[in-house]
């Protein structure tokens, strides 16, 4: 593959001597470069793998800024004890208050400082994609419902961040309506024996707290042994709120009171439907009539007062 202009093998025998120093210099440079390279490889390189072994220790030496609740409890044991029992028990102090190391350096340096409403709403604002089981509110709606006029009112004026279930933490009586919670929402990471014995769990909410009239009336009626929630099912209305339903369809009562071949005669009084209507009345049976039209007093009295079950 010689250039066509040159006749093949026409030149004199080549004299390579002038090229030796060039290749010698290049070879020398190569050796020097490799030696310098070997000298520059960090001492601990390759100790554990293809990296500088000392980097591992360098990565470890930094001090932690988040210290954990035990560190907070060293000074604030009273608050820590209250906090651990309540619904925020699984939330670390520093999640709301910021890194503990900053507070240790400067006692004033602790969150939340000014706008506490925003600090609560970070988690509890109603938000698309927030799981429906998690308590969340629309601030304006909530304030309208509970009659708060100043939109800047801080949440902690009524709610305690450390004991959020108590509305009135001094008396420890008024409590928040429990939307359906999983046990782990309060008990996450706690080595709490009640977790394994749900029957022994203290009741955090009783219907009578808000519906005293109804409860008192029900206690005197024939159905007094039946729990409110047997008939009033808690239905999640949407992702954010629930309501108690009052089902007046006769078929609902017939679930317990309907005559059936599998049902014991020793239980609740049994009837046939709509034959029962004909039995107690001379009129033509009206299938739209509800049981409670006649039997309300056997359940409980009705009262004017309305209680909203949405927050």
């Amino acid at each position: 593959m010689r250039s066509p202009s040159e006749p093949p093998e026409s030149g004199p025998p080549p004299d390579y001597r002038h090229a030796y120093p060039v290749f010698l210099i290049m070879g020398g440079l190569l050796v020097v470069a490799l030696a310098v390279r070997a000298w520059l490889v960090p001492e601990t390189f390759g100790e554990f793998g293809y990296y500088r072994g000392a980097a591992l220790d360098e990565a470890k030496v930094r001090t932690s800024r988040y210290l954990g609740r035990q560190a907070c409890a060293e000074c604030h044991d009273d608050v820590a004890a209250l906090h651990a029992k309540d619904a925020h028990g699984s939330v670390e102090c520093e999640t709301c208050h910021g890194p503990g190391s900053a507070h240790v350096e400067d006692a004033e340096n602790v969150l939340p400082r000014a706008d506490r409403q925003q600090d609560c709403l970070v988690c509890h604002r109603r938000l698309d994609a927030r799981p429906g089981s998690f308590p969340q509110i629309d601030r304006d709606e909530h304030f309208r419902l509970v009659g708060v006029t100043n939109a800047a009112t801080a949440c902690v004026r009524c709610h305690s961040g450390h004991e959020p279930l108590f509305m009135n933490k001094d008396l420890r009586t008024a409590r928040l309506h429990p939307l359906i919670h999983a046990c782990g929402d309060c008990h996450l990471g706690r080595q709490d024996q009640t977790l394994k014995q749900p029957a022994g769990h203290p009741q955090i909410f009783q219907c009578s707290y808000c519906h005293a009239d109804v409860s008192a009336s029900a206690a005197k009626a024939e159905h007094h042994a039946i729990a409110c929630t047997t008939c009033h099912l808690f239905i999640k209305e949407n992702a954010f709120s629930g309501r108690i339903v009052r089902d007046t369809d006769p078929r609902f009562c017939l679930l317990c009171h309907g005559q059936a071949d599998f049902r014991s005669q020793d239980g609740p009084p049994l009837i046939t439907w709509p034959g029962h209507l004909a039995d107690v009345s001379e009129e033509t049976p009206d299938p739209t009539r509800a049981c409670v039209d006649c039997h309300q007093d056997q359940i409980h009295d009705l009262f004017e007062k309305e209680v909203s079950h949405g927050l």
Binding site: A59, K60, V61, S64, Y66, H88, S90, V91, C123, F134
Partner: peptide, 23 residues
């Protein structure tokens, strides 16, 4: 992310794990 290597090598949790209120 280093998984908070400085924390986990002392037996602490990574900061994000510690701060997460919902586990």
């Amino acid at each position: 992310c280093t998984l908070c290597y400085h924390r986990i090598s002392r037996g602490e949790l990574p900061a994000c794990v510690l701060a997460c209120p919902k586990g």
